[in-house]
Computed example of a mutant assay.
Amino acid sequence: MKTDLEIKNDVLEELEWQPNIDETQIGVVVENGTVMLTGVLDNFQKKVAAENAVKKVKGVKALAGDIQVKYGTNYQKTDLEISKAIVKAFEWNTAIPEDKISIEVRDGWINLSGEVDWSYQKDAAKRVAENIVGVKWINNTITIKEAVLPADVKEKIAKAYKRSADIDANAITVEVINSLVKLSGTVHSIAEKKAAENVAYLAPGVHIVINDLDVID
Rank of each mutant, 00 (worst) to 15 (best):
Ser184Leu: 01
Thr78Ser: 15
Arg163Asn: 09
Ala64Trp: 14
Ala62Ile: 05
Asp4Trp: 07
Ile208Tyr: 15
Thr38Asp: 10
Lys162Asp: 13
Val28Ala: 04
Glu14His: 07
Val187Gly: 05
Ala171Lys: 14
Gln25Phe: 09
Phe44Ile: 11
Thr78Cys: 09
Glu16Leu: 14
Val174Pro: 13
Lys70Ser: 07
Lys136Val: 02
Ser189Phe: 11
Ala129Cys: 02
Lys61Ile: 04
Lys88Pro: 03
Ala200Leu: 00
Trp137Glu: 08
Ala95Ile: 12
Ile96Arg: 11
Tyr161Thr: 00
Val11Lys: 10
Asp66Trp: 10
Ile7Asp: 11
Gly185Arg: 01
Ile96His: 10
Lys194Asp: 09
Lys193Ser: 06
Glu6Ser: 11
Lys156Pro: 10
Val148Arg: 03
Ser184Ala: 09
Lys193Cys: 02
Lys182Arg: 12
Glu23Arg: 06
Ser102Val: 09
Arg163Leu: 08
Asp79Ser: 02
Gln18Arg: 13
Asp107Cys: 01
Asp123His: 14
Ile96Trp: 13
Lys77Gly: 03
Arg106Ser: 00
Asp42Met: 03
Glu14Asn: 10
Val153Tyr: 00
Lys100Gln: 13
Asp214Cys: 12
Pro97Arg: 08
Trp92Ala: 13
Val187Asp: 02
Ala147Thr: 03
Met1Tyr: 14
Ile86Arg: 12
Thr173Gly: 12
Val153Phe: 00
Asn93Glu: 10
Val40Asp: 08
Ala85Lys: 11
Val215Gly: 10
Glu16Thr: 15
Ile7His: 10
Ser102Tyr: 14
Val40Thr: 15
Gly33Met: 08
Ile142Val: 05
Val87Asp: 08
Tyr201Val: 03
Val60Phe: 09
Asn198Pro: 01
Thr78Val: 13
Asn9Lys: 14
Val174Arg: 11
Arg163Cys: 02
Asp117Pro: 04
Val60Met: 02
Ser189Ile: 08
Thr24His: 07
Ile167Ala: 01
Ile157Leu: 04
Ala160Lys: 06
Ile177Met: 05
